[in-house]
C-alpha cells in the first residue's frame, strides 16, 4: 500500500522549481506535521538546462527521497516534458501550456495550465513558481492553503506586505485553477 504522495516538478534551471518544491514540503512538514522531503537534480549551469525537484509527503518515515512512483509530474518546459512524458506510468502530468505543446501520448491523464500567462496577468511573471505551488496544492491536496500560506509568509518574511500579498494571491490563483483541474 502506497502511503506517500510523490510529486516531481521539472523544467529548466531558473524557473524556481526548488523554491516551489521546498515550500510545499516545508508546509507539509512544519505546518501540517507530516514527513516531507525535497531533493533536486540540477546541472552545473544555473540557467537553462534540465532541472527538477522531487517532493515526497507522507505520514510515515520517508527513506528514499527521490520520486520513483510519481502521483504528479509537473513540466514547466519542453525539455522536461520530453524527458517525462510517456515514462511516468499512470501519474497525472501537468504542463505549462504557455511553454509546452503536449504532443506525446502519455499513459495517464495530462492537463495544461497557462501558468506563464496567469503570472503575467497577475502583474509579475516571477510569481509563476508560487502559482505552480498553488496548482499542485489544488490538484493533489497534499497541503492545505493555510499551511501553504504560512510557508509563503515565512519565506518572504522581511519583504514588503505588497510582495507577500502578491504571492499569496498567486497561490490562490494557482490553487483555484488546480482545484478546477482536479474536478474536471
Amino acid at each position: 500500500m502506497k502511503t506517500q504522495k510523490e510529486i516531481t516538478i521539472s523544467g529548466v534551471g531558473g524557473q524556481g522549481m526548488i523554491l516551489c518544491g521546498t515550500l510545499i514540503a516545508e508546509a507539509a512538514a512544519v505546518h501540517e506535521h507530516k514527513k516531507a522531503t525535497l531533493s533536486s537534480e540540477y546541472g552545473v549551469e544555473t540557467r537553462g538546462t534540465f532541472a527538477k525537484s522531487d517532493v515526497i509527503v507522507s505520514d510515515e518515515e520517508i527513506y528514499f527521497p527521490d520520486v520513483t512512483e510519481p502521483d504528479l509530474v509537473v513540466c514547466l518546459h519542453p525539455v522536461a516534458y520530453a524527458r517525462y512524458a510517456g515514462k511516468i506510468g499512470g501519474a497525472l502530468l501537468l504542463y505549462n501550456s504557455d511553454e509546452v505543446t503536449p504532443d506525446e501520448i502519455v499513459p495517464g491523464p495530462q492537463k495544461g495550465l497557462a501558468i506563464t500567462k496567469m503570472a503575467k496577468e497577475l502583474g509579475n511573471p516571477q510569481t509563476a513558481n508560487i502559482l505552480t505551488m498553488g496548482a499542485i496544492a489544488g490538484l493533489t491536496e497534499v497541503i492545505t492553503p493555510e499551511g501553504a500560506k504560512e510557508a509563503i509568509r515565512r519565506f518572504f518574511k522581511g519583504k514588503s506586505d505588497k510582495v507577500i500579498a502578491l504571492n499569496e494571491k498567486a497561490f490562490d490563483l494557482g490553487y483555484g485553477a488546480g482545484c478546477g483541474l482536479r474536478e474536471e
Binding site: 516545508e26 512538514a29 514527513k35 516531507a36 522531503t37 525535497l38 531533493s39 533536486s40 520517508i62 527521497p65
Partner: peptide, 9 residues
Amino acid sequence: EIIGHLREQ
C-alpha cells in the same frame, strides 16, 4: 550530495 542538498524536517 544526496544528504547535503536534501531538505527535510
